[in-house]
Write a protein that binds this DNA or RNA. Structure first.
Length: 132
DNA sequence: GCATTGACGAAGG
DNA sequence: CCCTTCGCCAATG
């Protein structure tokens, strides 16, 4: 990422993060909860979780939460979460780049070239499955 | 305290 | 159709 100081972040852009009022206290815990609900052999995308939570405009935060997920008490199945292309973007964060693929394959998810083959078929959308 | 980054996503050129 | 840029929000340097 080059990011040559394109626009500089505007000072004071701190908006009240209205995250699922009444759900979890932390935005992260909400993400963990949803991630843990992902059935075995199924995968979802960061955007799907973000949309379910309500922060679809900030799918990045979901990925960020996943980063902290590694330190969560029950390990969050972050390996079932991929980007909208079905690509295992966060495989480098599992300690080993092969671990994520291995885990997915173990659950019956076919991974080819760092990408979930039948991603569309096994895609698990919390907004649909859970029907908030 | 400001600048940069980050496991994304959608839109524009 | 591929690549670049912007947006969002939080954390880190």
């Amino acid at each position: 990422m080059k990011q040559l100081k394109k626009k500089k972040q505007l000072p004071g852009s701190k908006k009240p993060s209205a995250i699922k009022a009444g759900r979890k206290d932390s935005f992260f815990e909400t993400v963990y909860d949803v991630a843990r609900l992902i059935p075995k052999g199924r995968v979802t995308s960061y955007g799907a979780i973000a949309a379910y939570i309500g922060t679809k405009l900030s799918a990045r935060m979901v990925g960020w939460a996943m980063n902290a997920a590694g330190t969560a008490s029950p390990k969050v199945p972050a390996h079932r979460v991929v980007n909208r292309n079905g690509m295992l973007s966060g495989k480098h964060h599992f300690g080993s780049p092969d671990m994520m693929e291995n885990l997915l394959k173990k659950e019956g998810v076919k991974v080819k070239n760092d990408t979930v083959v039948n991603f569309v078929t096994i895609f698990w959308d919390p907004a649909v499955e859970l029907e908030l």
